[in-house]
Design a protein around this nucleic acid. Structure first.
Lengths: 242, 242
DNA sequence: CGCGGAATTGAAAATACTCAAAATTAGTGG
DNA sequence: CCACTAATTTTGAGTATTTTCAATTCCGCG
């Protein structure tokens, strides 16, 4: 049992989950949804800064979905400054360890979160018999591939300001998809973690934020950001100078 | 019909394909393999520098697998200096356009190649009834996610020499997995294309090659490379200085 | 043999990093 | 609620790295 698991939660049926439409059981009817609850190993709360899973954890037969909150994934240890991604509600993690391998990375909650742990073998078996689930699972896997490709594209942007603008726009789009503001949100991660993700230093992130602010692109107050000029940010992400 | 398609090929059964064990129908028995041939829309040859598919091509209902040769994929047009990947035999491409979207990128043969075009809808339908195929398809999708994550990890390496060393090692491992030498191979892509992929300039690649050579890490003769010091390259990829 | 793209090289300029210090904020316990 | 400590963030100066731009060389190919 993980230290981070404050408690197993009361049965929150997928049917009542706010994230249902962007999660695995999207599009399932009531009967199938009933069956789907069997693939869920458990749901648990995780406090800020606590691990969801650790490098070398058991065998990779578990897939995680963020129900509430946010999580960062790292390659190797959490402290190795290799941040591979930030995940928000409805997003899967732990795919890199499937099928059957042990976790080569670790995941840390960036804020108090709720996680659904899904049995991969059981999911496979349910996919055998529920076609809509199988279809949607394929779609989600390919979404994941696209997401990773977007990350790669962002990292190939040579200039640091391009990368950081693309990063802010990515967060913006993902918050918007969840019904939150696309222009006003809180960074749940530190400057250091942003830097580790973008292949930059924390100092550079700090300076970029200052530059963006003086160019009227954003307003910043601690970790709260306001995107003032989305077209400007897009132009920057695509290589314009400022 | 694509200009690049010199001719449709005689029916090469998957059963006789050299790439069988790292391709989609891996592990299928003879009966299933027979069925699998129905998901293949066509196989075609593509000459060096000719497109496999183009940005905006029909709707994305086609998945491509490299049977022989090598292909580069780009985001947007081929000329936009946004290389998203290099693909060798047995590797899939076109996943980013599935399901149902049009190709947002394009693919270009780096050498004379043979490509299998697979109908995604038919593949889905065959997955409905052939469990081993479905399992393996899932595995391949997750392999793809891992591959993309490795690319991201490589791009996050701050120093150019780290990135390039990781690139050479990645090629090495992939050639080795296909039974070729892990230490001696030909770069099928130009310095410019390597640079576009790694977020560096062609000049930098050229200089890095010179540095690696004088550090006895590699020997280079035009596009032929010999990896002389794999441990050294690994150390470099992981951040050691030279 | 000559043309043209690819690769190399050099020097200057731009960019991001390192290291160190100061300022700010968050967390903890009295 | 405040004080104290630890952590995060900001800032500055100097350094290292990579890019840019231009010129040259090298090959492959007709």
């Amino acid at each position: 049992m993980n230290l981070s698991e404050v408690s197993n939660l009361r049965p929150v049926e997928c049917a009542n989950c706010a994230m249902r439409r962007m999660c695995l059981p999207e599009g399932l009817d009531d009967g199938n949804l009933q069956q789907f609850n069997q693939v869920i190993l458990r749901r648990f709360r995780t406090l800020r800064r606590e691990p969801v899973y650790r490098s070398g954890d058991p065998v990779g037969e578990t897939l995680y979905v963020v129900r509430v909150g946010g999580v960062k994934t790292c390659h190797g240890g959490v402290d190795q400054q290799q941040v591979t991604g930030f995940h928000m509600s409805g997003e899967m993690l732990g795919l890199e360890a499937l099928p059957g391998a042990s976790h080569d990375g670790s995941a840390l909650a960036l804020e108090d979160s709720e996680i659904c742990a899904i049995s991969y073998p059981r999911l496979e078996r349910l996919c055998d018999v529920v076609t809509p689930l199988r279809r949607h699972f394929h779609t989600l896997l390919m979404d994941e591939i696209r997401r990773e490709q977007r990350v790669s594209a962002m990292l190939r942007n040579s200039r640091a300001d391009q990368r950081f603008a693309a990063f802010l726009l990515d967060l913006s789009a993902r918050y918007a998809a969840r019904g939150y503001s696309s222009t006003r949100f809180r960074l749940t991660m530190s400057r250091q973690e942003i830097g580790d993700f973008l292949g930059l230093t924390a100092e550079s992130i700090s300076r970029l934020l200052r530059n963006f602010r003086s160019a009227q692109l954003v307003a910043v107050e601690r970790r709260q950001v306001l995107l003032n000029d989305m077209p400007g940010l897009r132009a920057l992400a695509q290589g314009a100078a400022y």
